[in-house]
Design a binder for these strands. Structure first.
Lengths: 338, 338
DNA sequence: TTGAAAGCGCTACCAG
DNA sequence: CTGGTAGCGCTTTCAA
């Protein structure tokens, strides 16, 4: 900047004014400075500029998701980006892979970089380590999962309601032997979805088929194996609630291989690309809506909203595409008419 | 930092040493300083720290892709993240939506933020505006598309080869009436893939079926419409090369609706989730490999590699899943044996 | 309309 | 092993 000042025969302060588009500079001088800046390949240094600035804003939001490559995280990222764009804010994104240690490391790193706010899909069970930031009113919004150990804004899908909707739908179609496949118990969303499934059984006065409820189904492969094992049972399930899109993929793949795509009902949690072509009925969580809501909350905090933390729940939606509407096949167990 | 220094009765310089883990501080003092820092909720300011540092590195790479939500961009992002993680570098990601203006705006913004390097999947036709950065050896690697107007590293899939492979595969299965659906002409990859298709026709001595070659197919809807139009022709195509995954989706959807999934051969460019379950034969570009290669190039530049720019091409791969191996149906036109 | 001086939070350099 | 001083590139404050 000094070089530009020297080259155009003005003071640094004037260059600063020109660079920042501040008023009160003679057009002639402005042009001279701009020309010098261009000629010298001058690049404004935002970091230095923010250092002295009063209301220092870096214009960067840190976003920690499970994996930027999975469609849920990617859509969330995109929705956030769209929410932030009008405010000229960019996203510093990182994948956590459900690693607690990395979560904390990245958060600290981002805070050192003075991001203006944080969006967190936590991998950790508790986030007590964020207490100091909460105390100083640093904007943090949790997405998809609620905070534990601290209190700050969160926006999440109502996973429990979704699980309930899925199983209720299958029950309404006459199924009683309904398998429930969910991810590891340590994952809150998996627990919630399973709890929702139990809610549905209870609400319909149906006993939970204990032998068909499997958790810890953490991959496509495990899902496929579970389907094979379940279908080999003496009294196999006539329907499957798959609690996550990776599980749904494994389920469909396995059923396809077994030639049972049209005889076993499936409702999946999470929509994914091409599920319509596959005819898969799903509980859809509107990720774009989630991201928009998270963005809105964050923007409110950024503009000084000091109200108590809110915990919003978004309702998921049942999309019927055929697989969830398959009736119970073969030897359906005796069923008490409601 | 001064506060921490005062609170622990040492100089700022010593605090700096502790914070940065520099050697030459008595353990006792170190502990005292750390305690004070924790007590005061001190947060190191990386921006200020980099300002004075000699080999200033922000530890941030700017990544500009089409859309962080699409699976290609998302996978690229992830592969880059993995490449950068061991070097403690984070990603500042932005979607361009094929908008030239936004590309330049974001690039300038990122440079002002002093990112250490840039990865660009350009939306613009030419990138002359980057000339000053190239001149000062600023690390920029182009992904998936080669630079125009400047010379800097690039790593891309060989789209032309891929297009050629796809059509050659269909020709080998006896098809002659092969539709070629590609995106807008202004997109280089679309041009390349179509050129590859023409290469294949030429190599097999088959005249290009001009009425079946459609470009400007920029969405699922347009792809579906194109399929419907083509299949209504007096002499309809018996096979379709769809030049992009969104096109493939539209094609499959349309063929499914028409009940022609098993009678019309399809080879798509770009793999996507569940395409295996759909039985879609595709030309797969290994995005993870692409991202890793881009990351490697960037890291090389970051560690001072001054060699001339390289333009690497990665070969795509043909994945046979059934749809591309369907033989020509019905009234196949008279075919000269090669 | 312009500029000089001070200082943002931190590290380099050298002195002790 | 520790500390003072200068200065990174910029903005603020205030004076001209």
């Amino acid at each position: 900047m000094r070089d530009v000042a020297d080259a155009s025969g003005v003071s640094v302060k004037t260059v600063s004014r020109v660079v920042n588009g501040e008023p009160g500079v003679k057009p002639e001088v402005r042009d001279r400075v701009s020309a010098a800046a261009a000629r010298l390949d001058y690049r404004h240094n935002l970091a230095a500029s923010n250092l002295r600035r009063n209301a220092a804003r870096t214009g960067v939001i840190g976003v920690l998701v499970q994996d930027v490559a999975n469609s849920f995280s990617a859509s969330l990222l995109r929705a956030l980006e769209d929410a932030m764009r009008p405010h000229q804010m960019l996203l510093l994104a990182a994948s956590l892979d459900e690693t607690t240690a990395r979560e904390q490391y990245i958060v600290e790193n981002l805070i050192s970089r003075r991001v203006d706010g944080l969006v967190l899909v936590p991998a950790s069970a508790r986030q007590d380590y964020l207490a100091p930031e909460i105390r100083r009113n640093f904007p943090i919004v949790f997405a998809d999962r609620a905070p534990r150990g601290i209190d700050t804004d969160s926006v999440a899908i109502d996973h429990r309601l979704g699980g309930r909707m899925a199983v209720a739908h299958l029950l309404a179609h006459g199924h009683r032997r309904i398998a429930v496949l969910t991810d590891t118990e340590t994952i809150a969303t998996a627990r919630d979805r399973r709890a929702g499934a139990r809610d549905a059984f209870a609400a319909h006065g149906v006993e939970v088929p204990g032998d068909l409820v499997r958790s810890g189904v953490g991959s496509e492969e495990l899902a496929g194996a579970a389907v094979n094992a379940l279908r080999e049972l003496p009294d196999p399930p006539t329907a499957i609630f798959s609690g996550r899109n990776t599980i749904s993929k494994g389920v469909i793949r396995a059923l396809t291989q077994r030639g049972e795509r049209d005889s076993v009902a499936v409702v999946g949690f999470d929509d994914f690309p091409m599920s319509d072509v596959l005819g898969l009925s799903v509980i859809r969580q509107d990720v774009a809506q989630l991201g928009a809501a998270v963005g809105e909350r964050l923007l409110a905090r950024l503009s000084g909203d000091q109200s108590p933390p809110r915990h919003d729940l978004l309702s998921p939606q049942l999309i019927m595409r055929g697989s969830g509407e398959i009736p119970p096949s073969e030897i359906s167990p005796p069923e008490p008419s409601a």
